[in-house]
Design a binder for these strands. Structure first.
Lengths: 270, 270
DNA sequence: TTGCTCCTCACGTCACGTGAGGTGGC
DNA sequence: TTGCTCCTCACGTCACGTGAGGTGGC
């Protein structure tokens, strides 16, 4: 029986039979030494069917060749099927999550225009070591927060300068709001592994690595609060929980050209 | 900002940034013409994030580059997300089916030993053109069916021989059982495209192409009935319905060495 | 000089589909 | 001679990871 006839019985393509031959999964009963023609016997059909049945379960050809090797022990087969079951359960769960995210994006499109939801990324925050000062703002929003940055920034810069440190990127993070609406505001500058004496006003903090929803905002800082709202509702809508203190990374800052500022907002999620 | 710094912001691997550069998805702001060093700006971070967000939804890089091209029209994005949703629903459904099959195999392992469930394949039956005769057996099982083959086979062979036809593989198929347990048995031989005069006893039939569960059995024909049972319960257990008349293909037949016989059982399913 | 980062190929992944280019039997 | 089947490479698929082999700046 030549390869075409056997393939029709399979039913598979001749190419597949050559592939299985090459892998040693199913070798022809005979190969003509001059023409290279493969010939098969119907008695090889059960083996081909076993291969197809396992492949149909999504098991890889390498695994299949292990199971079909000499001793097709029932235990081994059972183990492989259980493994495959677990794999499938995992990938189905992962794809369901992905589907939920796709649907969240579709809903987000209906709602907002300013912040494209495709700007949001779930990632791990970078570990950052900063020298920070602290103050309490009477409430949220740029009108309350802005002055605090205005007051603390120069003080920190001065302290770092006196100690001979070069400040890196500016970073802010916020404690969760109190009942009276007031918010603890931390302002700091990245210092890498440089050291500085600390006291009641200046502290060194290593911001922890956590999972965050991150959005990068380009433009003047006063318009940032609507992004916060949208980012929070995106997080909620995608079935996650916002938890802990939000961070702002001032990736690029121009006192004179606020439209060119680039700010990253990070909201920790669980 | 060199590639490593930008990659840490991503967070992605430098290799990914080079890959995106190569695809034209995200090109560095500048490339040093002598060293080839890429340099990026934080202002490119939103674009990187958009790429990552879409990739996280399982959208291919080619599709992403279409959406990010010049006009990121909201309509286009929505269309792509809807397409992806449909894709995901399909693959999840397919994987659920696959999972059900894996579980059916696991259950089958618990039950039977004779017929390895990994012998069963779902496929489309081949179209076969046969010259057949018909008789009614009083019941199922080799004791009832065997004599019919014994009686009809020589008659068909003789008729074909007289007409100068070369008979191919022997094929049997069965009508569904009557209330009294009797079964119509069709016995025939493959004739390809050869022609022969038909009459009340000899008919030409083209067996239709249908989805079947197929098992290949190697050994004496009398032991075939337990395979039937097991095949039927496998079909049922895997959540399908057996429907229509079963076929047997006598792939290899030795009057003198029944242990070497190879028979394929096909049960149509819906 | 020693690390560190960067560069450009190029292989490997998984199971084949799909030519390309050539040969053997009716 | 014309179809048909068979053969052996070898590319392409998807998004990178992972060396190999080499270079530039502190």
């Amino acid at each position: 029986m030549n390869i075409g006839d056997f393939a029709r019985l399979g039913p598979v393509s001749p190419r597949m039979l050559r592939h299985y031959d090459q892998l040693g999964l199913l070798q022809p009963e005979d190969v003509d030494s001059t023409t290279g023609y493969r010939s098969y016997s119907v008695r090889q059909l059960p083996r081909l069917h076993r291969i197809l049945a396992l492949r149909d379960l999504g098991i890889g050809l390498n695994e299949i060749s292990t199971v079909l090797q000499d001793n097709p022990s029932v235990e081994e087969l059972r183990g492989m099927l259980r493994l495959r079951r677990a794999q499938l359960e995992d990938t189905i769960a992962a794809e369901r999550d992905q589907l939920a995210r796709v649907e969240a994006h579709l809903r987000a499109i209906e709602r907002n225009i300013e912040m494209p939801s495709t700007n949001v990324v779930i990632k791990k925050s970078q570990p950052i070591r900063i020298a920070e000062m602290f103050a309490v703002a009477p409430g949220a929003g740029p009108a309350n927060i802005g002055p605090i940055f205005g007051a603390l920034n120069p003080q920190i810069i001065e302290r770092l300068g006196k100690a001979g440190l070069r400040p890196g990127m500016c970073v802010g993070y916020y404690d969760e709001a109190q009942d009276d609406g007031s918010i603890g505001v931390h302002v700091g500058f990245e210092i890498g592994d440089q050291e500085i004496d600390t006291d009641d006003t200046l502290k060194i903090t290593e911001l922890p690595v956590v999972d965050v929803a991150s959005a990068v905002y380009e433009g003047p800082i006063d318009e940032i609060s609507s992004w916060y709202e949208q980012l929070y509702s995106w997080v909620e809508d995608s079935g996650r929980d916002a938890t802990g203190s939000a961070r702002e990374l001032y990736l690029e800052w121009h006192d004179d050209a606020p439209a060119k500022n680039v700010t990253e907002i990070q909201i920790p999620i669980s």
